[in-house]
Design a binder for these strands. Structure first.
Lengths: 331, 331
DNA sequence: CCACAACTTTGAAACGTTTTTCTACGTCGG
DNA sequence: CCGACGTAGAAAAACGTTTCAAAGTTGTGG
């Protein structure tokens, strides 16, 4: 274990002062080409690696942002993450990825870690509506951008996709296919996405028939399968089922097939998110597509703009529109 | 933006010295119950959050580990990540998740970021065999545990699954089903997993017939679909196809079905990893299951043991065995 | 040849913790 | 009642960078 080499070792080797080395590292344009070359050589020869903590401590801010998602196991969020990472690394930022796994406690602990790390900003898909945690972050000078969640206030940025429209689109499509009674399999109805998609679905029904809601504690294939079993056990299946996300839909599909129920002949099925895997599923699934990658990219651009140009930054609430993708499961 | 509250503000409020506050934070047992209560109250009232950088700087180490994976979009790695996170947060460590996306350059940059952050240790699924990057980390006092990659040296920990056995198992299964000519669709043959699985496959063939290898630059459904198209265009399909992972297999399945080729009647198909989605695919896919979650958990336990008990820690190279899961695609 | 500007580089202070040493106080045994 | 011992808390010195004012250097015009 070699003795740690610091900026002063580099300075000594290059025959300059520590301040100059710091300048080479942070504002190379302030330093003459000749000196810069000497310093860079010394850095290379000594294998110097900047001590991020010391740097953050003194400078008062880091080149790091936090990303807190609800479920890292959901391909929807992995796609968003990929978009975030792209933009962040283009602008020289590192990303600390946290998974709240739908638990408010875990989310809170993750945000604490991010606050301790003095990240420059946080991208978050909040697990509930309560804004106080985020306000506390903002009070500390940490910018926050909401991802996949519209901000209700003008003083913060957000990037979202219209879930009400998505729900309406899905159910309209099911009704156009001839369905009259429609089921909605959803995750916890404390999650905004689940609520909005339901609202959209009900709007499409216009009160003519009630939406038959099956609420599950998780949004996973397993939960979907259980939902299907439950619906079957309760008797009288709806003509069509709308699932709050594709993972649930895959599970429901599996559950239905397992019970010998045909999709779409007996029951039509549509999911949400259009993750890669649904196109290859047993019966390829219709879904509502969202611009996931774009969501991540734009959110990060907003966040970093807010961090790097706090003066000129204008808060924006961006709302994308979802898109219907029709496949076998609703034909 | 409130003025930042530091440990001395807390100290003043509680009527003690900064050192005592630090003790309350880090070794509460050293402080009398009475004083501790006063300090904790002050912390709460002032909303104090420890400055992680200052702490790391002075203490010389952080409560953070890094996790560098090859492809965050692959459910295999998300499962591993979940296992890692579980153990890490149980022991009070935060995880910085990096995605090298199969690019050596990105991996290097990520490791640099981790080194700058002075993480305590790194879990890594290396993108190639070159050990020098990792040796450099270790020289800096950053422990490294290899994940899904066996260590060839006794001085480092690793957790892996026997991919040669996996390859052999897969191909034996295909041959038992009557296949004589066998194709292998793989990602870059610079990746150890791809190489080992091929080796295992060839071993199962025993040189009787050559393994027909189709190498793709990525291991994604898209690449799989392209591989299928390519094989079809080249004529004469094999009886059975073994894919180096499930994402490729899903793509191959889609590609075959698109061309009207039936699975398993015309071509049998088996993947690798047994990710959640393959059970629900058009034709449910046979696969080779690995103890993913366990992989993450054990790797993290080893790493943190190495970090927290450097004296007594014994390096271990752990090798799990994979397991065949038979579904429709090979019946 | 001097004054002045423009540009580089230096040196030291500061960032907020942790850690080590040291002091003060109370307790206990002789 | 005295001295030794043990404990809780205080005080101050780091940790490795960045920053900022000041000093140094070079070039230009009068």
């Amino acid at each position: 274990m070699q003795s740690p080499v610091g900026i002063r070792d580099v300075a000594q080797r290059a025959g300059v002062s520590p301040g100059t080395v710091s300048n080479v590292l942070n504002r190379p344009e302030k330093v003459s080409a000749e000196t810069r070359a000497k310093v860079e050589a010394a850095v290379r020869e000594l294998g110097f690696v900047r001590h991020g903590s010391a740097s953050t401590l003194r400078a008062g801010h880091s080149k790091t942002i936090g990303l807190s998602v609800i479920d890292i196991g959901n391909p929807f969020f992995t796609d968003v993450t990929a978009g975030v990472e792209e933009v962040a690394s283009e602008l020289g930022y590192a990303v600390i990825l946290c998974n709240s796994a739908g638990s408010r406690t875990k989310e809170e602990r993750n945000l604490l870690v991010l606050a301790e790390q003095r990240v420059r900003g946080v991208l978050i898909t909040p697990s509930d509506e309560d804004p106080t945690r985020l306000d506390r972050l903002r009070e500390r000078g940490i910018s926050v951008v909401l991802v996949d969640h519209p901000a209700h206030r003008p003083d913060q940025c957000s990037v979202a996709v219209n879930d009400i429209v998505g729900g309406t689109t899905a159910v309209n499509h099911l009704r156009a296919g001839g369905a009259t009674s429609i089921g909605y399999v959803t995750g916890p109805l404390t999650i905004r996405q689940c609520i909005d998609r339901r609202t959209g679905a009900e709007r499409a029904l216009g009160g003519a028939v009630p939406l038959r809601v099956t609420e599950m504690p998780a949004m996973t294939p397993r939960a979907g399968q259980e939902a299907a079993a439950k619906m079957i056990a309760e008797g009288e299946l709806p003509d069509a089922i709308f699932c709050a996300n594709d993972l649930l839909a895959l599970g429901v599909l599996r559950g239905l097939m397992h019970a010998g129920i045909r999709v779409p002949e007996d029951v039509a099925l549509i999911g949400y998110d259009d993750i890669d895997f649904v196109a290859a599923s047993a019966v390829s699934l219709s879904s509502i597509r969202q611009p996931t990658h774009q969501l991540g990219r734009v959110a990060t651009e907003l966040l970093l703009d807010e961090c790097d140009h706090p003066g000129t930054h204008a808060h924006q609430q961006i709302m994308f529109q979802p898109e219907l993708v029709v496949r076998e499961s609703t034909r």
